[in-house]
Simulated scan of single mutants.
Amino acid sequence: MQSFTTVFAQLLSVVPKYVFVKLSKDHRGKRSPRTFLRWDQFVHLLHIQLAGCKSLRDGIMGMNAAAKRLYHLGVKPVARSTFADANNARPYAFFEALFGELYTRCLSQAPKHKFSFKNKLFSLDASVVDLCLTLFPWAKFRTTKAGIKLHTLLDHDGYLPAMVTVTEAKCHEANIAKLFRLPKGSIVVFDRGYIDHAWFRQLCKSGVFLVTRLKSNARFLVLERNLVDRATGVTSDQIIQVADGEQTLVLRRIGYRDKETGKRFKFLTNHMTLPARTIADIYKDRWQVEIFFRFIKQNLKIKPFLGNSKNAVLSQVYVALIAYLLLAYQKFMSKIGLSLHYLARLMQRNLFQQCEILDLLDLRRQRLKLNNSNRLSLLV
């Protein structure tokens, strides 16, 4: 009879151990931990994310309940105070770096975006997580409110978060957008909150294409009008010049009418050769970043938090993003077409089961193995 390690251990096998050790050395603190190591902290935090634990105490109890199976994970039970101290004291930058490494690994298995062009496609957006001002005074947002903001660059190859920066909620997303370095030839799509002509010139200079919506009060001069096929929903395709102080910027303005809703949209881009309808479809696909935010808020533990310090909060956020990548990796490897929501629920209920993950995801494969096993038993 075949035996497998736990589902949790198989999920953790995606994390390259040599990479984890290297990052641990690079982010070593003043005092090296003797018992509760970086790996122990990571596994406990990841368990809280995948198992849907409601609190730090709940997470510790869940791990202790599976004490006999912790050997396969390479960890031991830990005291709640030790776990809490580690979350507060050990810099979150380690988990941020680990997230970056795992994104690269998951990207190698991710399907390409659905468009015919070969350019990399990214969506840029930010989402606020509300906090209690009394418990999180360092994240003060308004007079009686606190919060953090997740600035996210979503890669449309597999819809993976490529870069995530966490700031206080009062930080404007346009300021953080300027810090992201995008590969030459890539296309980035964002809403009107990011419109900044100086940044647009920077993107054009870097060879990066942009797609966004035109503000209703925008002032511009039409330089050229292109022919359009109204059957595709495109109502206009123009080359325009926008003024920004003494400088000007030449862009492309596209009008589009959605046949289903009847709504009209005005898009802005610096890509002069893609079909106008493709530009409209690119902006429509930007909705995937909203789906990403909804998923992590509903299925992972972005809130409530296990600690009140900034370090504890950001450590939990980046481990939640790592959990997202691990789930996405299993989705890519299974090639079954399961939704991430279903996959997350399945992992939550079977985290310490001893079976192969692919059998868990594909019931037909599981039945086939069971039938073959029964046949062998009859022959014996």
Results as ranks from 00 to 15, higher is better:
residue 349 R to D: 11
residue 297 K to T: 07
residue 306 L to F: 10
residue 329 Y to C: 13
residue 38 R to F: 06
residue 293 F to C: 00
residue 204 C to F: 05
residue 198 A to L: 09
residue 111 P to V: 12
residue 104 T to E: 15
residue 107 L to Q: 03
residue 359 D to Q: 14
residue 361 L to N: 04
residue 17 K to V: 06
residue 175 N to L: 13
residue 218 A to T: 11
residue 54 K to N: 05
residue 21 V to C: 08
residue 110 A to G: 09
residue 203 L to A: 07
residue 201 R to P: 00
residue 304 P to H: 15
residue 225 R to C: 09
residue 150 L to Y: 00
residue 13 S to N: 06
residue 209 F to P: 03
residue 144 T to A: 14
residue 290 E to T: 06
residue 157 D to S: 14
residue 380 V to I: 08
residue 343 L to P: 02
residue 159 Y to N: 15
residue 176 I to M: 07
residue 187 I to F: 10
residue 26 D to R: 14
residue 369 K to Y: 01
residue 224 E to C: 02
residue 366 Q to E: 08
residue 51 A to C: 05
residue 281 D to L: 07
residue 323 A to N: 11
residue 214 L to W: 08
residue 365 R to T: 12
residue 28 R to T: 08
residue 313 V to P: 01
residue 43 V to M: 09
residue 269 T to K: 08
residue 130 D to P: 01
residue 36 F to H: 03
residue 322 I to V: 10
residue 323 A to E: 05
residue 159 Y to F: 11
residue 245 G to I: 11
residue 31 R to G: 09
residue 88 N to M: 07
residue 308 N to A: 10
residue 116 S to F: 06
residue 201 R to M: 07
residue 92 Y to A: 15
residue 168 E to W: 05
residue 155 D to H: 04
residue 302 I to N: 14
residue 230 R to W: 09
residue 257 R to I: 09
residue 368 L to A: 14
residue 73 L to D: 03
residue 31 R to N: 11
residue 203 L to I: 05
residue 157 D to F: 02
residue 371 N to H: 07
residue 352 F to D: 06
residue 353 Q to E: 07
residue 191 D to G: 02
residue 164 V to G: 00
residue 231 A to I: 08
residue 77 P to H: 14
residue 336 I to C: 07
residue 71 Y to C: 12
